[in-house]
Write a protein that binds this DNA or RNA. Sequence first.
DNA 1: CGTTCGATGCACT
DNA 2: GTGCATCGAACGT
Length: 208
Amino acid sequence: MSANRRSGRPLPRAFYDRDTLAVARDLLGTLLVCRSAEGVAAGVIVETEAYIGETDPACHAASGLTRRNAPLYGDPGLAYVYFTYGMHCLLNAVAERRGFPAAVLVRALEPVEGEALMRRRRGRPSLPAHELCRGPGNLARALGITLADNGTDLTRAPARGPGLWIEDRGIEITDVAWSPRIGIRVGLDRAWRCFATGSRSVSGRRTG
DNA sequence: CGTTCGATGCACT
DNA sequence: GTGCATCGAACGT
């Protein structure tokens, strides 16, 4: 990955209003930022997964609209956060046009800001930086993302106060691979996981 | 290195 | 009552 260029520029809604696989690919290298009363925690996205439509058996919309998956049917650029396994919150960015249920799961970050805060939240003081946000449950915990963030507009960066958004920092990730998605029992025929091959923060296997 | 397994709570059927 | 888009500890090789 290359050096920084810009800062403070949230990705516009048009970025998310596209084919979900393109969104999953292009989110690599962008910066996920979470600001709370405790401070700012942020990292470069290095691993994503696409969940696309009611015909994707692994997508939460596979059985149609429910109260839980309603955000998937909403505007692109919104956050879809859900609770699973009794203890983890997972963050998605809603993609494609309103009414078509699709999203990109953010699975791993390389920490850029707030490592001390991340360590405190993870409760593991000696964790190396590249493990702080490895895995979707871990990164949500490290950034302080909860169900309260469900439905947040990721295209808006408040000037102050709490906020959750994704920025373009001009980082280019060129070495990318695709693999089947992790942790699901259906839809394994689709290679819809996208990750930076060179990053130690990527969960699971680092080869496609 | 690898695999297995328990924790834990909620939406959905 | 069932099944998780997970994690980390425990154990086997």
